[in-house]
Structures are given as structure tokens and as C-alpha cells.
Nucleic acid binder design. Sequence first.
DNA 1: CTTTTTTAATGGTACGACCATTAAGTCCTG
DNA 2: CAGGACTTAATGGTCGTACCATTAAAAAAG
Lengths: 242, 242
Amino acid sequence: MSDSCLFSPVQVGRAGEEVALQIEAAILGERILPGESLPSERELQAQFKTGRGVIREAMRALKQKGLIEIRKGARGGAFVKKLEVTNASESLALFLKQNRIDTAHLAEFRESIDRTITMLAITRGSAEQKQALVDGTKELQAYLTDSDPDLEKLAELDRELNISLAQMTGNPVFEWIMRALQLGFSSNDFALYEDLEFRTKTILNWCQTAEYIAANEMLQALSSIGAHYVLLRQCVERCQKK
Amino acid sequence: MSDSCLFSPVQVGRAGEEVALQIEAAILGERILPGESLPSERELQAQFKTGRGVIREAMRALKQKGLIEIRKGARGGAFVKKLEVTNASESLALFLKQNRIDTAHLAEFRESIDRTITMLAITRGSAEQKQALVDGTKELQAYLTDSDPDLEKLAELDRELNISLAQMTGNPVFEWIMRALQLGFSSNDFALYEDLEFRTKTILNWCQTAEYIAANEMLQALSSIGAHYVLLRQCVERCQKK
DNA sequence: CTTTTTTAATGGTACGACCATTAAGTCCTG
DNA sequence: CAGGACTTAATGGTCGTACCATTAAAAAAG
């Protein structure tokens, strides 16, 4: 960073907010690019003509927002981050956690997204991508005969399949939404793999869905997606009974 | 707050994070309920056996997360907030903003969401809600004859209509996503209202959509939504030519 | 040239003082 | 007694300094 006049002093109460806003504006306005570093705290303190505590609090807020990443030590400092979906996902997770979002509501949302994604994936996905999807489900099939599978691994595979499906739409928005949902609520799907019966059905359903997508059988694929959510709802219902 | 041992001391590097985590856990675990206040900063400083700066930074992070609200003065302090959709939406909006989403991709996503929302709104919305929607579009109609309307006001009305439509689904997830989209990208719709021709068509389209929804004419409503996005795409295309 | 040591820059913590704001209590006046 | 004006105490907000821990680069040693 040069000694140019990027920032202007601030004196009123809530100075921390002001500082954070100015820096945020500089980042969003691309006057500081991702990867670059902000001036050190002591330099900022001088530029803003304020105490170091104020700067630190502003930094904390920006870090929490996911705009910067902070590294200690020499040549350390605050580095502008390329914003990732993770932050939004965490907020979503927090929101859902405190507001006790009904699993049914979430499933409803996911189903609608899944249907759209499936349609787009069929019309836009390349043959290679479709084949890769089928291959992925084949890997899943290996767990059919395993009586005590690694559930973590299984859930991970499920996540990857969902995300690669979303990638096939060629629309990053769908990919981001899917990642957010996966990060926030893989726990729901987890239940689906715990019970042997549901696990078997879910894996088979995945395989079928992938086959339909690879064969460009849109209606069949959608129906298969629907079946998946029927399964999920049954599973949730059974879990709640216990 | 009593002087009970809610929190335990912390000494390692990154103490601020630890403090924030402990308090967040207390909030999420409902050991402190929304509306209640945390101990004062100086009290927390004593409980955590740390400096006040650490506490303040933790507070800043929690505030940014939307978990607490801070009031100055006597009987002030940090009050636990009931988390609202808005907080999570802002996060997503910020993310969308920095990542320069292609308008076409965004429109595609919005269209799919809009279609689902419309379907759910028709099947679940009450007669009152549907009427309110129609009334809202009537208000929009008033701008048809205005040759130089207040575009800000117009965009605000549009936002409200979209959000109330999302609320009719009875599913907070849809409301969340709609709010985020509105926060991040009302600017796109803005263009739609700037040009007289598009403005007229868009307003009429809104009215028609609302009528169809109120009349439970699902197919017609969906077709009307489709028409809206055709308009949007035309508008974007024209804007890019200039 | 490689390894080790030193060094300087930077974030993290602590303490202490003071200011600004605010709600509650207190006092004065009518 | 009622109501407004003043005082007070608690709390967040700011400032400054000193020191520690970490880290990467520079310097020294082999």
C-alpha cells in the first residue's frame, strides 16, 4: 500500500463503524484488490487519526463479514479475501439454527432447487459430466453391500454428487446455493444414510437419477428426484417418532 | 445476569475468538434468551480474566453476526437479538455483490425461484394475502400515467411485492432468498423501470400476475412470470447495446 | 550453497485513563 | 402533590502505551 490518501480521518462516536465502512467501500469499489493487503494497523491508526483499538474493532467486523483474512507476524496484516460462499452459508446456518427452521420447509426449498438444477443439467451438461455423475453413483453403490459403512465418507460422496450436478448447470448461482445448503444441512441427509433400509433406497435412487440424467430422460429424472424427497420425508417422520 | 459461572477464563492467543465462541454458544444454547442482556464489558472482562479490548472485539464480531445489539448509556449493554432473516440475507447479498454475477445467470436463478414461489403462493396463500397483492399492484398502476415517476419509490414497491409473495409460501427459506436477491440486485429491476415502454409493460405484467394468483390460475400465472423475464432479458439486451 | 541465528514488523493482549451517552434518582419550584 | 430541572452512576466508546507471540526476511555461520 502506498501512502496515498485512501482513507480520511474520523472523529465522531461510532468511529469503528465509520472506519469499517470506509474500508469496506474501498474493497467493494475494488480500490484494493483481493490478495492485496491493507496497511498495518498502526499505519491505519495514523491515516484515520484514531486509536488502535478502533482499527482493531473495525478489522474484527470486516473479518467476521468475510471480507478480509488476518495473518500474524512479519509481512502479516489484513489481506482482502475473495469472498466465498462459505460466509453466506454460515449466516444461513446460524439463521436456521436459531429460528428452528422446520426440516420440511428446508426440504421443500431443496426439492425445488434440485428440480431446476436437474433440468438445466440435462440440457446443458456435457456427455463427460453426465458420465462422471454416473461414475460417482457407481462409487456410491459400493457401499450397498457394506453392513457398517463409513457414514462420513458416504455423506461426503453425496455432497460431491449434488455439487457436481449443480456445476453442470453452468450457472454459478446454483452451485453456490447448493454448497450453502450442503454446508448448512448435510445433517439432514445424514439421517438418510444411517438406517439400512433408507440407505439402500437412497443409493439406488441416486443411481437411477444419474442414469436418467445421462440418458436425457428429463421427466423420469424429475420423478426420481421427487422419489428422493418422498424418502427424505418418510425418514424424517420416522426419526421424529422415536 | 447473575454472577454465576457462565463463562470460563481464557488465556491463549486468539482469546477474542474464544470469548466470542463461548458467548455465542451461550446464546445458541439458550442459556441467555433473546431480550436479555449480557454482563457489562467490565464484568465480562473479570469473568474471562482478560483485557477489555478482547471483550470489545468479541462483541464487535457477535454484533456483526447479528447475534447481539449494543446500547450505550446506563442500563445499556449487549442485548441478545432474535435473529431475523435480514441478517442472513445481507450476508448473501454481500457475497453476490463481490462476485459480479452475470445478469443472465442471476435472472435464470430468479426465474426458477419465482416460479416455485408463485406455485406455492397460489396453493397456500390466504385470500387476504392474495387481495393484498392485488392491492399492491393497483398502487403500482398509479405510476402508469406519471411521466416522471419517483423511481426509488417504484423500486421499493416492486421489492415489497416480491417479498410479500415470498411470504405467502409460508416457508421462511423462500423469504430469505428473496430478501437477499432484492438486497443485492434491485439494481437490475431498476433498469426495467427507467424506460417508459418497459415500465408500462412491467407494471401491467405485475397486475396480470397478481390477478392470476388471486384467481388461482396457476398456469396463467406462471406464463405471466415467464413474460416478466422475457421483458427483463430484452431490457438487459437493449441496455448493453447502448 | 545450505543451515542457523538474529532482527524487525505485525498482530494480540493488557491496563489505565478519560469522554459521551443514557436512564434513574433527587431536588427544587410552583 | 406534581412536574420539570439537575445530579449521579453505570455503560459503551476512544485513546495511548507498553509488552508479548509470531512470523518472514535478512544476516551470519558452517
